[in-house]
């Protein structure tokens, strides 16, 4: 499968990474190189194969549905670029 520049820009938008037109050109080539190369997987017959969900057989761990920590708002915002009264501050979202 091949991607065009419009697809590269759409993917970059989905990934929330700003790219220039120049970068889109370069990325189109690089991504197509990688996608061409992974194409060899189509040689493998996976008709009756289950997808891998875990590499080590293990029951999913369960625990009581109770609060085990909390009361650490200051810790959580400690590294925020901008915070006020233990809230994250972001640009205005709703007009």
């Amino acid at each position: 499968m091949q991607v065009d520049e419009a697809t590269v820009r759409r993917i970059a938008r989905l990934a929330r990474i700003k790219i220039t037109d120049e970068e889109a050109k370069g990325l189109r080539q690089e991504l197509n190189g990688i996608l061409d190369w992974v194409e060899q997987l189509s040689e493998v017959d996976t008709g009756n194969v289950e997808p891998m969900t875990r590499v080590v057989a293990q029951d999913l761990k369960k625990r009581e549905d109770v609060v085990t920590d909390g009361e650490m708002a200051a810790d959580i915002v400690a590294n925020a670029p901008l915070a006020e009264d233990n809230f994250f501050v972001v640009p205005k979202v709703v007009e």
Binding site: R13, R16, I76, N79, A80, P81, L82, F88
Partner: peptide, 20 residues
């Protein structure tokens, strides 16, 4: 928003895209 670098943009999505 939560940690690390922030490069401000004209709105929130622009901020995400610039930062990343």
């Amino acid at each position: 928003v939560r940690y690390g670098l922030r490069v401000p943009g004209k709105d929130l999505i622009d901020t995400y895209e610039n930062t990343r």
